[in-house]
């Protein structure tokens, strides 16, 4: 374990990712370096196939870089084994997916409490209800995902991502399956979490209207970062 600069949440150094598809090697990421500080909100944009999803998987510790270094919150996660990565995902990262990825058999409360199950957390139910309140779903906790609208399901997913108080909230096309009005609500929730609670958020989108809410936009193309802009904050 190595401590990097106090402010840096993410320190990425010359990361590459190569997949083998049969005999063909596909280079999804070709040498990316990036530093993200605590409390930042970053949008990652790019066309499909630009390597942004592969990069997201590495950021989320679902995958390891082929070469290069990745420090998350001071931990050298690039070289960790599966179990250690699972521990990082559990304790440091909250994931929000395009397809919500909720467990259909469980109530919203149980879905939200899921990470605590693996963290052996105490008073899980109570914390799940509190977290649902944080995302504005206090009254829908007993419903199962099928009984909830798309926007509500995504809020449940966000609550699940937040329950362990992660260092980093990662969202992969969080509004991709929602209509624009509901999508805007979700984005407003992200902004709120960022502004009021100071949560570090990184999200991937291909939609310029979505990336517009982020003060920092990183653009991917052909497995490389082609631009990294910091702008003034814009309202949704």
């Amino acid at each position: 374990m190595m401590q990097t600069s106090g402010q840096a949440l993410i320190q990425i150094d010359q990361v590459t990712k190569t997949y083998r598809l049969g005999k063909v090697e596909v280079q999804a990421i070709r040498g990316v370096s990036l530093a993200i500080n605590k409390g930042e909100m970053v949008a990652i944009v790019g066309a499909s196939g630009s390597g942004k999803s592969s990069f997201m998987n590495i950021l989320g510790c679902l995958d390891r870089p082929t070469t290069g270094k990745y420090f998350l919150d001071g931990h050298d996660v690039g070289k960790m084994n599966d179990n250690a990565l699972a521990g990082i995902r559990r304790d440091k990262i909250g994931f929000v997916f395009q397809q919500f990825n909720l467990l259909q058999r469980m109530s919203a409360i149980d879905n939200v409490a899921l990470p605590l199950v693996y963290a052996n957390g105490k008073s899980r139910r109570q914390r799940a209800i509190q977290t649902l309140e944080r995302v504005g779903l206090g009254k829908r906790g007993k419903h199962r995902p099928v009984e909830l609208s798309g926007g509500e399901q995504q809020r449940v997913a966000i609550a699940r991502a937040l329950i362990n108080n992660p260092s980093l909230l990662l969202a992969d096309e969080p509004t991709g399956n929602l209509d624009s009005r509901v999508g805007a609500e979700i984005l407003r929730l992200f902004q709120e979490l960022h502004d009021k609670e100071g949560i570090s958020i990184i999200f991937v989108t291909h939609d310029p209207a979505v990336s517009a809410i982020s003060p920092r936009v990183v653009t991917f193309k052909d497995g490389m970062i082609i631009s990294d802009e910091v702008k003034r904050k814009v309202a949704v």
């Binding site: 599966d82 521990g87 990825n101 899921l114 693996y118």
Partner: peptide, 11 residues
């Protein structure tokens, strides 16, 4: 996949 993503270990 979901369980692993939220931190379930192999065991």
């Amino acid at each position: 996949g979901i369980r692993k993503a939220v931190g379930a270990k192999r065991r």
